[in-house]
């Protein structure tokens, strides 16, 4: 409990890391719910990886072009990483979503190819740049440690915008996700609402990747939504429940990682996994216990 008291203290040295972790934990499941509903789980895997490739490119190119001196890179690298992550996330989600709607073939195949190529490209780029490699490896491992006030503010503002837009236009976003044809006959601009949703997902993924890395971003996008779906009885319970579960798991994960000197990101994702597995078993047990004798006979 001493470690918990330390974490909750306003003077805690890593307080920005706690706040960022919890913010990402709350925000990612909000857009993750739509990825699950639209059966775009593979998008949730590929997008954070593509976003981190954007970070890798943004860290390497300015140094190669001589715009940035390696010894002074630390001052500007956050800005370049932010731009790289945002540009790659938004471009990738819009292109992949467009291809999914307009072309035939195997969407999972395209996402898988994008994931693999993005991973390989990141490693290739960074293998030739030792300055960029250090920051990127921290990102890949989910080391939520070095987060300054600027990063925290940027994350909080971006995620607040996502939350407000999702809340205000929830009705339209749900309608175009559930029944595009009906939305079109009701005069709704389906493409506009699709693009808005994808932009919200792209922004959230970018911020999450920048703050906590692709592994944790993926974990928080999907696992809280999958876990809550097992018990939720309506959309409100589903969305709010997933967000609360994400935030709570992020905090508990940080607490455990701090207490046992573990890397924060992987601890949080493993905790999410344990929660999902436990919830799955519990839901199955409840189903078995509440079955009527007639159902048991079948």
């Amino acid at each position: 409990m001493e470690s918990l008291r330390q974490i909750l203290s306003p003077d805690f040295l890593l307080r920005n890391s706690v706040y960022t972790s919890v913010l990402i934990g709350f925000a990612c499941p909000l857009v993750g719910v739509f990825l699950v509903l639209r059966r775009l789980v593979f998008m949730g895997v590929a997008l954070p990886q593509i976003s981190s490739t954007g970070v890798a490119i943004a860290l390497c190119i300015p140094i190669w072009l001589g715009i940035l001196q390696p010894e002074h890179a630390a001052h500007s690298e956050h800005l370049y990483a932010f731009l790289g992550s945002m540009v790659f996330s938004l471009s990738a989600i819009l292109i992949l979503a467009f291809l999914e709607r307009r072309t035939r073939g195997l969407p999972e195949g395209r996402l898988g190819a994008a994931y693999v190529v993005a991973s390989a490209l990141s490693i290739l780029l960074l293998s030739k740049n030792r300055y960029a490699e250090v920051g990127w490896l921290d990102l890949m491992k989910g080391e939520v440690i070095t987060i300054d006030n600027m990063d925290l503010t940027l994350t909080a503002v971006s995620l607040a915008i996502v939350l407000i837009v999702l809340g205000v236009f929830y009705k339209e976003l749900l309608l175009v996700s559930f029944d595009r044809a009906m939305a079109a006959t009701l005069g709704k601009r389906v493409v506009f609402w699709d693009v808005l949703l994808y932009v919200l997902i792209g922004i959230t993924v970018s911020m999450a990747v920048l703050s906590v890395g692709p592994l944790i971003a993926f974990g928080f996008l999907l696992i809280p939504a999958l876990t809550t779906h097992l018990f939720a009885r309506n959309m409100r319970q589903f969305i709010i429940g997933a967000s609360l579960l994400g935030g709570a798991t992020a905090f508990c994960g940080f607490w455990i990682a701090y207490s046992f000197d573990l890397p924060v990101g992987p601890t949080e994702v493993v905790l999410l996994g344990i929660t999902y597995a436990s919830a799955f078993l519990l839901s199955k047990a409840i189903t078995l216990l509440t079955r009527t004798p007639l159902q048991k006979g079948n």
Partner: peptide, 28 residues
């Protein structure tokens, strides 16, 4: 053709019919 993942009641689905007359971001 509807996905069972959506946790919508029959009333929620029927309610979508009035969305044409409700502006974006407005409460029904």
């Amino acid at each position: 053709q509807f996905d069972a993942l959506y946790l919508l009641s029959a009333f929620d689905v029927a309610m979508m019919g009035v969305y044409r007359r409700i502006g974006a971001g407005r409460i029904v």
